[in-house]
Amino acid sequence: MSMRPGRRHFLRITGAIATAAMVGGPVEAQRRRGTMRELEAAVRATVGEGPIVEGRVTVEIPALVENGNAVPLTVRVESPMSADDHVRAIHVFSEKNPRPSIVSFHLGPRAGRAEISTRIRLVDTQTVVAVAETSDGRRWSGRTDVVVTLAACLEDA
């Protein structure tokens, strides 16, 4: 996978992560750069090249996640949702899941609001990114860091 075409945008999405990862030491930082690169590739495969501006998109996940098997997620995009200015799609991505793509929503002015809730699987503590495509062809992003606690008693299924 070439990093070249999307490098600047990659940094835009992941800038804060790299800083945060420094706390975990160089090995952790490198590992997270690796997983964020996969996330970036998935974003590009979904929305194509071009700028993605941070903002307008809110990714809401409870501060405490008791089990990664069903994590409540709400994504919200600031938009008038009118016929000529609305959100067309919202794509949600995971940093550390085996596959970065989580879910894509397709909507339009008839949604009235760009706000959707669902439940997702998160394999570990990580960053979740949402990218919205608006009717004018622009892209916006938002993200949140999630702490996923692991169950103490795993039964022999």
Binding site: E66, T149, L150, A151, A152, C153
Partner: peptide, 11 residues
């Protein structure tokens, strides 16, 4: 004896 405390991440 220990309800409310945590075992791994769980209460």
């Amino acid at each position: 004896r220990h309800p409310g405390r945590r075992l791994a991440g769980n209460v």
